[in-house]
Write a protein that binds this DNA or RNA. Sequence first.
DNA 1: CCGACTTTGTGCATCTGTGCACAAGCGCGT
DNA 2: ACGCGCTTGTGCACAGATGCACAAAGTCGG
Lengths: 246, 246
Amino acid sequence: MTQQGARSCAAQALPAARPRAQVPDATVARLPVYLRALRALADDGRTTVSSAALAAAAGVASAQLRRDLSHLGSYGTRGVGYEVQELVLHISRELGLGRRWPVVLVGVGNLGLALAGYAGFDERGFTIDALLDVDETRIGQHVGDQVVRHVDELEDVVRSFGVCIGVIATPGTAAQDVCDRMVGAGVRSILNFAPVVLRVPPQVDVRKVDLSNELQILSFREHRKTGLHLVDGSGADGPPAGTVPA
Amino acid sequence: MTQQGARSCAAQALPAARPRAQVPDATVARLPVYLRALRALADDGRTTVSSAALAAAAGVASAQLRRDLSHLGSYGTRGVGYEVQELVLHISRELGLGRRWPVVLVGVGNLGLALAGYAGFDERGFTIDALLDVDETRIGQHVGDQVVRHVDELEDVVRSFGVCIGVIATPGTAAQDVCDRMVGAGVRSILNFAPVVLRVPPQVDVRKVDLSNELQILSFREHRKTGLHLVDGSGADGPPAGTVPA
DNA sequence: CCGACTTTGTGCATCTGTGCACAAGCGCGT
DNA sequence: ACGCGCTTGTGCACAGATGCACAAAGTCGG
């Protein structure tokens, strides 16, 4: 998860049996990676691809790829592989792409500007349809083909677009407030870049991306690698008497 | 994992028994969240905190929090809870913070600028010590207290800083190239924002953050929620018959 | 000093995710 | 027409993660 993401609607009630026909979360998290690899293959003119080749391109094991794809049906041909275009279509449909997803972005700081200009969104059908902020100096600014508006227009914007995705790129202090207003306006999917844990009702999905967290995880691994020679594999783990440098 | 991250040094060789004294990956991914919650509690003047309260602030179950903390030793007091400052210290040490981690950032586009200006890094000891790019028009630009330099200086920069973390914020086409040069210069931890799967030797850790992937995962869930009435959960789990407004 | 209350740390059961290995199925060459 | 080789799809076993429930261990009031 991630890692690295938040689940808010899982394991709430119903501990009893369930038909269990859903696509597992871990598989869903990999589908966009497969999709990107498939697009690259298509651009290279490939029409079919084996699970081994696609798995290598996506950085996973071939057995895992096959099981993932089996969760959305049997679209491969034994002895041949998968047809690239067909697979692109099926994965896109499963992910709910192939339609336009309006995105409402709140917080037009450095990160918000980067997100607004990110080319990877439009390619997948995500169009940033509103840029909101509280800072008077930013309101009215042109970013791409959009104009920054005041966050008070949030409710109107959401209502006019219907189902949409909210992106929070504000400082941490404002995030919960913005989140509450989004939820109140009917947003059920939120991507949060602010470094806070958002409280939302169970029917709302939140995914969190925390840049600092990612670096800290890398720091941990580097720390472990560097200090590895202190650990001896003898039997029990003697406390390594770590020298605290700082 | 998140999720959503890439593991490159796990399950490579040694299928046999292992002392297994390491902190699980899933726990490591949550430690930064605990750390942030603890800092917030400390700022509020709290000196001790129970697992239930800290778990609520971090958005996890209390049993999970206790097990996570138990992996780094028993630092709690039964009947009381955990001492906030002490726990901050122990988690920081476990994560390898408390020292300065030089960060080398390649790719000074919108996203790179946002990362360079992100306040959350310095607070944890991550200092962006070099900004590199290939674009001549960007080289020489001042960003914060740094000057953008040519990516050809990468090797010199890494050598002068020693152990450091590389951040790739280039377009996808340049990412593998930059990655290879980082690895060649001795970087063993890389945070990748480019939408490609990087090929690295096994001793190098890569974590990937893909903004488009996150939106696609949200799209899937929204799609599943919206299309739920098509699935017949014959036995249990009656869908709440959510009114589809749009 | 003692008993009641609070909270941690963990054994256990469950569930999810991963990888091996192989049978089933398909195309192709002969 | 038929067998051969290649690839998918999946049964199975295992490793990892999660949550429940409770004993151990501490504090606090009397």
